[in-house]
Amino acid sequence: MGKIALWGMQHGLGVTSATAALAAFIGLEYDVRTLVSQPQRTDGDMERFFNKTINQYNRQFFAIGGLGLDSLERVAKSSKLERNSVKNYTLMVERNRLDLLWGSERLNRPQQGSIEAVNMVFRMAAEYYGISLLDARSGQDNEVSNSLIRDADLVVICVNQNISVLEKYFDNQRKHWPEVLEEKPHLLLMTQYDPMSKYKIKNIANKYKLKAPILTIPYNTSFKDHLNDGDIKGFFARNRFVGSSHENHYFIQEVGRAAKTILHEIGINTKLKRIERGN
């Protein structure tokens, strides 16, 4: 299983929407059991982005307790976590391929033992899921995020085309990174990307002499509208096979490139796992 933490150098970089986009795309396109979660829940954005699907598949469970990370934390502390425990506390988004684990507001003020219990939850998730996509709270001084990064197999660092953010990443990495990130394998993801900007990825790579790929989640109005409508799965389903002249084609292609690169990085054969058209 590949545990992937998505993290931003500062707040406001669209980490949650990027995590949701990658999860929705992978759940639609690849036969891999995938878990997505925003462990430190604040405004409930991750759950809201998938709201229409959650309501469709989980009507009888949606409004009741006994689900999510808080419940699993209690199970972990009682030493009763088993292979299917995490699955049993999630909400289904894509049958047999994508589940959402409701995050915890209590983790914003973690109590003794909570962080280790949460790590136990995601370690046990490895017994069932092929990949976990975790939205880690941005910034340096967050104990929960640092723990998620420490335990991750891969970290996706989110930036945007703001020159101050880019300079933090390229010119002064260690000053703006959690110490636990220094030895971790990582990829660079540019969120809300504008390919018409002077600061497009080719120019950024040349300016900073970067050899590694820069992944992107482009800015897309329809995608943003679907996020607000809680229908992110519907957006990808409706635009899955759009032609090259369609206004959403570039967005779909770039999210697909990012997803494929991430899966390759954690050792998943995307050719074998790709779902054939019509399935």
Rank of each mutant, 00 (worst) to 15 (best):
H246P: 15
R257N: 12
Y219Q: 05
G256A: 13
S222L: 08
D229A: 05
N248P: 05
L210E: 05
H246G: 15
H226Q: 06
K207T: 03
K202Q: 08
K233H: 09
D225P: 01
Y250A: 08
R257K: 12
R257M: 06
F241T: 01
N228A: 00
K202L: 04
V255W: 01
A212M: 10
K211T: 09
A212S: 10
A205Y: 04
L210Y: 06
L215M: 15
A205C: 01
Y250C: 04
L227V: 13
G234H: 09
N206I: 00
A258M: 06
Y208H: 13
S222Y: 07
A258V: 04
G243D: 10
I232F: 12
K211W: 05
K209Y: 04
N248R: 12
Q253G: 09
H246Q: 15
Y219C: 04
K209F: 03
R257Y: 07
A205P: 03
I252Q: 04
D231Y: 14
Q253I: 12
L215Q: 15
N206T: 02
L215T: 07
V242P: 02
Y219W: 06
R238E: 04
N248Q: 10
P218K: 08
E254M: 11
L210S: 03
N206Y: 03
G256I: 12
S222T: 10
N228M: 00
V255C: 15
N228R: 02
V255I: 14
H246W: 15
E254H: 14
E247F: 12
N228S: 02
A259V: 09
N248E: 11
D225G: 09
E247G: 12
F235R: 10
K209V: 02
Y219M: 02
F241N: 07
Y219A: 06
N228C: 00
L215Y: 09
G234Y: 07
N220R: 13
G256P: 13
I252E: 01
T221K: 10
K209D: 07
Y250H: 11
I214K: 09
I217G: 00
K224Q: 14
